[in-house]
C-alpha cells in the first residue's frame, strides 16, 4: 500500500492545490475559513477529505470548481488542474471545464437537479453545452447509456420522469450520470454524496463510485464527515480541522496509526460495538470546534487536545512531512507516535 501511494504521488497529479487560503468577507474583517491548504489528487486516485461541519471542506471544493459564494474569496494559493492554474484562467474557461473535465456530485440531488425539468432534458443539456457536435438522437442514446452504466433500471423510461418521481438513491445515480455524461471527466468531486441516503443505498452508491473510478480511470475527491465511508472507499485521506489540514496519509496507515491527536480522537470516539464495551463511556473530544472568526494563537486544536503542552498554545505547528508520504500538523507527533506504538505493541 505504501508503494502504491508513493507511485501515485510521483505522477503529475490531476489536481494540485498549494497554500490555498479562502476568506469570507465580514463587517469585522475577513474571516479565514480555509487556511493554507496543500492537497493533491493523483490520476485514478480516490482521495478522502474528512472534516466536521465548519471545517471548510465544502468551501474548499467550491473553490476548486470556481463556484465560491459571492461573499467568499480566495486570498492566496494555487489551484492547478491538469497543469493549468485555475486562478489565472478566465472564469469563462473554468466554466467550460465544469461539467466536462471536472464535475460535482452534490449531497442532495433533489436540490441540484431542476425540479421542473425531465431527467432526459437535464442529462442532454450537459451534452448540448459541452459537446455541441453530438446530434440530438445521439444525445438521447448517450443519456440512456449513462443511466444504464450507473445502474438505473429502465433507463429509457426514466428520461421522461421528473426528479421528484425518483427515490433518493436513483436521484443520486442520475446526478452521477450527469457528472460523467461528457465522457471526459478527469476529476469528480463528491461532496457528502451518501449522507442523505440509507445505509443499504449508501453501500450501493459507494460501490458504484469505486467501480466507475476503476473503469473510467478518473480521480475522485470524496468529501465526507463519515470515517466509515472514507475507510471503505478512499486510497488517501486528508483530515481537515478548523480550515487547516492536520493530517494526510494513506488510508491503511491513517486508520492503523493516526498521528494527529484530532484524528486519533475521532477514531477512538467511534462506537465499535461488542459486548465488552457495551454501555461504557466512549472516548470523546471535549469542547467544540472553534469559530473561524475567533483569534487564533498556536495550534487550532490545542484547546481540545489531550496531549497539549506549553508550546501548542504559543506556536502554530506546520504541516510536516513524515516518512512514507504522510504529513501531520502537530508539535508532538513523533513523540506520540512512539508512545502509541509501544502501547499498541503491548495490547
Amino acid at each position: 500500500m505504501i508503494s502504491d501511494a508513493s507511485a501515485v504521488l510521483t505522477a503529475s497529479p490531476v489536481l494540485d492545490v498549494r497554500d490555498l487560503t479562502i476568506a469570507f468577507r465580514h463587517r469585522a474583517g475577513p474571516v479565514q475559513v480555509v487556511r493554507g491548504v496543500d492537497l493533491s489528487v493523483g490520476h485514478g486516485e480516490i482521495v478522502g477529505l474528512v472534516g466536521e461541519s465548519g471545517s471548510g471542506k465544502s468551501i474548499f471544493a467550491r473553490a476548486i470548481l470556481g463556484t465560491l459564494p459571492r461573499q467568499a474569496e480566495v486570498l492566496e494559493g494555487k489551484i492547478a488542474f491538469s497543469g493549468s492554474d485555475l486562478r489565472r484562467v478566465p472564469p469563462s474557461e473554468v466554466r467550460q471545464l465544469r461539467g466536462d473535465r471536472m464535475a460535482l456530485v452534490p449531497q442532495e440531488p433533489m436540490t441540484s437537479l431542476n425540479p421542473a425539468l425531465r431527467i432526459g432534458r437535464q442529462l442532454t443539456e450537459v451534452l448540448e453545452v459541452h459537446r455541441p457536435e453530438i446530434g440530438s438522437a445521439a444525445r438521447t442514446a448517450r443519456a440512456i447509456e449513462m443511466l444504464d452504466l450507473v445502474g438505473v433500471n429502465l433507463p429509457g423510461e426514466r428520461l421522461a420522469q421528473y426528479p421528484h418521481q425518483l427515490s433518493g438513491g436513483l436521484r443520486q445515480r442520475v446526478a452521477i450520470a450527469m457528472a460523467l455524461i461528457c465522457g471526459r471527466v478527469e476529476l469528480l468531486i463528491a461532496d457528502e454524496p451518501t449522507t442523505a441516503l440509507d445505509v443499504t443505498i449508501q453501500a450501493q452508491i459507494l460501490d458504484l463510485f469505486v467501480r466507475l473510478q476503476e473503469q473510467q480511470r478518473m480521480s475522485v475527491l470524496l468529501i465526507t464527515h463519515d470515517l466509515g465511508v472514507i475507510a471503505q472507499t478512499a486510497q488517501r485521506v486528508a483530515v481537515m480541522y478548523a480550515g487547516e489540514l492536520v493530517e494526510v496519509a494513506g488510508v491503511n496507515e491513517l486508520f492503523a496509526m493516526p498521528h494527529h491527536p484530532y484524528t486519533r480522537g475521532l477514531l477512538d470516539s467511534l462506537p465499535r460495538g461488542g459486548n465488552a464495551a457495551r454501555k461504557s463511556h466512549l472516548p470523546s473530544i471535549e469542547g467544540t470546534v472553534p469559530s473561524p472568526a475567533a483569534p487564533r494563537q498556536g495550534c487550532a486544536f490545542a484547546d481540545r487536545c489531550a496531549f497539549r503542552v506549553d508550546i501548542c498554545g504559543r506556536r502554530a505547528p506546520m504541516l510536516e512531512a513524515t516518512t512514507s508520504g504522510r504529513s501531520v500538523r502537530c508539535h508532538r507527533w513523533q513523540e506520540l507516535a512512539d508512545r502509541f506504538a509501544c502501547r499498541d505493541a503491548v495490547t
Binding site: 438513491g169 436513483l170 445505509v199 443499504t200 453501500a203 450501493q204 460501490d207 472514507i230 475507510a231 471503505q232
Partner: peptide, 23 residues
C-alpha cells in the same frame, strides 16, 4: 443492514453491496 454499514476499518472493506434495489 449490518454488512452495508461502513466499518471504519480499511482492512474490512465490503466487496459488493449486500442488497440491491430500494425500499
Amino acid at each position: 443492514l449490518m454488512s452495508s454499514s461502513p466499518v471504519p476499518d480499511p482492512r474490512r472493506r465490503n466487496n459488493a453491496p449486500a442488497v440491491q434495489g430500494e425500499v
